[in-house]
Structure formats: C-alpha cells, structure tokens
Amino acid sequence: MFEARLISATILKKILDAIKDLLNEGTFDCSDSGIQLQAMDNSHVSLVSLTLRSDGFDKFRCDRNISMGMNLGSMAKILKCANNDDTVTIKAQDNADTVTFMFESPNHEKVSDYEMKLMNLDQEHLGIPETDYSCVVRMPSMEFARICRDLAQFSESMLICCTKEGVKFSASGDVGSANVKLAQTSSVDKEEEAVSIEMQEPVTLTFACRYLNAFTKASPLSGQVQLSMSADVPLVVEYRIQDLGHIRYYLAPKIED
C-alpha cells in the first residue's frame, strides 16, 4: 500500500508545471524515504531529478517500493480538478496498475477521487557523480527567469560567465547583443533577494536558452535558484521546495563545432 498526503494541492500543481514542458511521462519511484523521479527530456539533452522526502508529507506510507509510470499530461488534467486549498492524497495498492488522486476541500464537505492508469515506462537511470563545482551562484528565481526570457530573444544560446566579481549572462545574434551582469549583493532586506557567488575558479559556459527557459517553470516553487557550474560538465539548476525536497535540472553545455 502506498499513500502520500499533502495539505495543499498547490505544491503538486507547481511541481507538475515545473516538469511537464520537458517530459511527457515519468516514473515516480516511491520508497519509505519518499518519492523520486529522474528522467531525460525527449531529446536527451537535459535531465530532471525530483526528490520529495517522506517527512515533508502530511502523511506518508509506503509498505513496499513501487514505481509508478505516469503520463504527465493526464496527471495535469487530474490536478486541474483540484482547488489550490484542497488536500491531496495519492494512493496505490501494491502491484497496482492504477493510481488514485483524492482531493478534499478544507471543510471536508467535498471529496473527489480520480483514478489514472499507470504506464510501464522504459526507465534509464543515470548515475550522477558527486561534483565539487567551480562556481555556485544563488540568485532570486524570478530574476533568473527574467534574464533567460530576455536573452532568448537574441539567440538560441546564452553564455554564462562567472567570476568572483559577479555573474554575466550574454547572448548575441542578428538583432545585436545583450549582456546582463549581476554583482554579489552586499546587503539585502530579504534573503530571497540576495545574489551570492562561491567561486573556486572562474567558469564560462554556453547553454541552450530553450532548456534554461523550461527550467524556470519551477520558479513558483522557490524564491531562490542555485546554478552550479564547472568547465565541461553539465550545469545544475536547483530549486529547493521548502520542507519537502528539491528539483534539479542538469543541462549539457554546448560545445563549439
């Protein structure tokens, strides 16, 4: 028996919004430590890794490890049926071929359940090595989303250059060129507004704007985003989900032809 309950459906809606543009389907691996999903996007350029810890749920029970392959478009249709303040419970029997989403209104007067067929997906798990990154940038997630959106107008790819002075995002194309520089903030009223840089060595890498923009769909999950970079290895874009886990996106840098 698997059962996981969240007080608010909003968080699950936001998680789905953060992955459904990149993935058509995904396998949710459930164990007593929580729920994990790892999947490459359709073109195999980026990787999504979602971790939701069992202690972050209002209620969590997982008697036996189960893997639930879900069509994310179908899941999105079901989650649309939940109000933001509904409690959501995800339930499945051991070896089941369906999963049930149950939504309860705050006053418990409306209860709805939606059963969805599970899929058998060919899952190809990738081992992600522990890496000490040369540069780790933390910045407001909305700021990163804005920069990605703005620079995508100029080019398909964006250069991210990180030094101890700051981080620079650049794009150039037929229209012209764009540069956005962010310095490390000295003092801020709110922690969420801070830009911080931990640098061992300066790094300059090029990434496809299309994927970066897809990652920023996770912005509603977290006020801050963390970018971890080293030469010649994939960028990690991480959004922490408060008290519940995180979503990480890995993107291979572009290489000069």
């Binding site: 490459m40 350029v45 994939p234």
Partner: peptide, 12 residues
C-alpha cells in the same frame, strides 16, 4: 554542437 546529457552521466 549540443551533446546529450547521457554522454556525461553513466547508466546505473
């Protein structure tokens, strides 16, 4: 050129 992510991480 855009390499795939699988070229960086090994299958486990």
């Amino acid at each position: 050129m855009q390499p795939t992510i699988a070229s960086y991480f090994q299958k486990s």
